[in-house]
Amino acid sequence: MASAFRPSPVMVTLKYAAILGYVAFALFPLYWLVKIALTPDALIFSDGTALWPSALTFDNFRKVIFQSDFMGYFTNSVIVSLSTAAATTLIAAAAGYAFSRFRFRGKGIVIALMLLTQMFPLLMIIAPIYKIVSSLGMLNSLTSLIVVYTAFNIPFATFLMQSFFDGIPKDLEEAAMIDGCTRPQALRLVILPLTLPGLAATLGFVFTAAWSELLFALMLISKNDAMTFPVGLLTFVSKFSVDWGQMMAAGVLALVPSCLFFFFIQRYLVQGLTSGAVKG
């Protein structure tokens, strides 16, 4: 009987080939990014679609770091993304805890409203947002981006946090309160340590979303010193040419913080994304 369930070698090979094909397809743009970044300017067009550059150079990286405004954009992006991630996670954790633990008047309406905000494409509301930010005199400021990103990320982050709090039994807080804790103490000493995976997952999602956001950054920022890197990348496109090598080098550098961030939180993230799926 067992042999009936043994997969044939052909099927196994086909499966691996399919997975390999998918991975190659998914990672190819990333490879191309690195390849162009490392190709000397003179060879970009002559090399054409060759998979491997005929010469390697770090010149593009040197120029991007030392001779362009990229480090400024980069710093702006770090400030905006970290602030957004921190503010959103803090607010979403508090809101998620309230939704998970308390019964209060209007809870259903608030949840419905938050869901409602997720239903519209951002393009539809970009004009009113521009108007509001402009009348507040906040155009060309990083604060405007942080506020807008935070506002748009809160609903999703709140639902995410709520599901993490739902996964922590109420009994734990109650046991802590009987043991002598106030509710804030129970939250800090018992619930918070158990929510770390959830907080890490939320931080990760929000950070990435803010890091790569272009639409609002493009609309609300026009001055060079307040640009985030997705907008800054466009400065490598001039009237008559595109500086592909530097643009790609900037792209590679922009990947670094995201990768680092995920490297540090991945332990919690994997735990976070799977927690609650199975009991215990």
Binding site: P169, A175, D179, P193
Partner: peptide, 29 residues
């Protein structure tokens, strides 16, 4: 409030703090 009633409770789900050792669980109060 519960903390000032000087009572102890054993829950159906045990409600042990998962991130604390047995010793710390018992001495948490």
């Amino acid at each position: 409030p519960p903390r000032d009633r000087d009572i102890a409770m054993v829950f159906q789900s045990y409600a042990l703090y998962p991130h604390m050792t047995v010793g710390r669980n018992m001495g948490f109060s």
